[in-house]
Amino acid sequence: MRLKLLAAAATAAAATLTFATSAQANHSWGGYHWARTANPFTVKLGDNLGSGWKSYLSTASSDWSTSSVLDTTVVAGQSNNSCRATSGRVEVCNRTYGSNGWLGLASISVTGGTHITSGTVKVNDTYFNTATYNTASWKSLVMCQEVGHTFGLDHQDEDQTNPNLGTCMDYTNNPDGPPGNLHPNAHDYDELQSIYAHLDSTSTVDQSAAVQTVGNGRASWGKRVAHSAHGDTYVRDFGKGNAVITFVTWAG
C-alpha cells in the first residue's frame, strides 16, 4: 500500500508538470476523492479562523459550490490550535505558524489508497502579516487553492513564471495578473466532474472514521514525492492503507 500511495502522488505530480501549459490538463490529485453514494454531496468546512480570514473562506466556499457535483458549507470549527483533523470534513485554520517557509498547507487523510476521510487547511500568518502577502489577492488565491486540494484537485500549472491561467489552482508571482488567479475556472469544475463521475458503495463524507494528523514542519510530513519551485507534495504512510498527503505552498 505504501508503494501504491507514493506512486499515485508521483504520477499526479508528473502529469501536472508534463501538461502544465495546457488549459486542458488533467489535474486530478492522484485520484484522491471523497467516497460518496450520490452527487451532489456536501463537504463541511470547519471555520477555525480569526476575523481577518473569514470572508476569504466564505468566498472560497461559494466559488467551489458552483460545481455541479459538490457543495460546501461553512460550519463552526471543531479543531484546536494545531488544526487537528476531524473525521468526515475539512478543518480550516490560521495561526502564526512561524518562519518555516510555507504560506499554506492542505493535508488529506486517505484510506484504501484514494478515499479522503478528512482534510485540513492551514494558512500561515507569519507571512500573511508581511507587506508582500497581506493583500486580498494573495489571501484569496491561497485560501481558494488549499480548499480545492481537499477535494482532490492538483495544480493546473506549477511554473509561476508562465502567464496566469485565471484559476486559483495555478502558481503565480502575481495573483492579480490578467486574468487574475483568485477563483476557480471552468476547467476546475470540469475536472471535479471527472473525479466524481463514478459513485462509491460507501461514504466518507460527514462520517466517523479513523483520521491521522501531521504537524507544521517537514519532519512530520513524511516522504517528499514531488517538488517544484513554489510547492512540494509529501506522503506520510501510517500503514494498513492509511496515509496523510500534504501539499505545501512555499512563500516567495
Results as ranks from 00 to 15, higher is better:
Met1Asn: 07
Met1Trp: 06
Lys4Phe: 15
Lys4Asp: 15
Leu5Asn: 09
Ala13Lys: 05
Ala13Asn: 12
Ala14Phe: 10
Ala20Lys: 13
Ser22Gly: 11
Ala25Met: 09
Ser28Asn: 14
Trp29Lys: 06
Gly30Thr: 01
Trp34Pro: 10
Asn39Gly: 08
Val43Gln: 03
Lys44Leu: 12
Leu45Phe: 09
Asp47Tyr: 04
Leu49Thr: 02
Leu49Ile: 03
Gly50Trp: 01
Trp53Arg: 08
Lys54Ser: 04
Lys54Ala: 01
Ser55Asp: 11
Tyr56Lys: 05
Tyr56Gln: 05
Ser62Glu: 07
Asp63Val: 04
Asp63Ser: 12
Ser68Arg: 11
Asp71Arg: 13
Asp71Pro: 00
Val74Phe: 01
Ala76Trp: 00
Gly77Pro: 09
Gly77Cys: 11
Ser79Thr: 11
Asn80Gln: 03
Asn80Ser: 12
Asn81Leu: 06
Ser82Ile: 05
Cys83Glu: 02
Cys83Arg: 01
Arg84Trp: 00
Arg84Lys: 02
Val90Gln: 01
Tyr97Ser: 07
Tyr97Ile: 04
Tyr97His: 02
Gly101Pro: 01
Leu105Asp: 06
Ala106Leu: 08
Ala106His: 05
Ser107Gln: 12
Ile108Thr: 14
Thr111Ser: 14
Gly113Arg: 05
Gly113Gln: 09
Thr114Ala: 11
Ser118Asp: 10
Lys122Ile: 03
Asn124Ala: 08
Thr126Lys: 01
Tyr127Pro: 06
Tyr127Ser: 05
Phe128Arg: 03
Asn129Ser: 15
Tyr133Ala: 09
Asn134Met: 08
Asn134Cys: 08
Lys139Trp: 08
Ser140His: 02
Leu141His: 10
Gln145Trp: 03
Glu146Arg: 04
His149Tyr: 02
His149Gly: 06
Thr150Val: 09
Leu153Glu: 04
His155Trp: 13
Gln156Ser: 15
Glu158Asp: 14
Gln160Ala: 15
Pro163Cys: 10
Asn164Phe: 06
Asn164Ile: 08
Gly166Arg: 00
Met169Leu: 14
Tyr171Arg: 10
Asn174Gly: 13
Gly177Leu: 13
His187Trp: 12
Asp188Pro: 05
Asp188Glu: 07
Asp190Val: 12
Gln193Ser: 15
Ser194Asp: 12
Tyr196Gly: 12
Ala197Gly: 06
Thr204Glu: 03
Asp206Gln: 06
Gln207Thr: 01
Gln207Gly: 00
Ser208Gly: 00
Val211Asn: 01
Val214Trp: 07
Val214Met: 07
Asn216Ala: 11
Gly217Trp: 06
Arg218Lys: 09
Gly222Glu: 10
Gly222His: 07
Gly222Asn: 11
Ala226Pro: 06
Ser228Tyr: 10
His230Phe: 13
Gly231Pro: 01
Thr233Lys: 05
Gly241Ile: 08
Gly241Trp: 01
Ala243Thr: 03
Ala243Gln: 02
Val244Thr: 10
Thr246Gln: 05
Trp250Lys: 08
Ala251Thr: 11
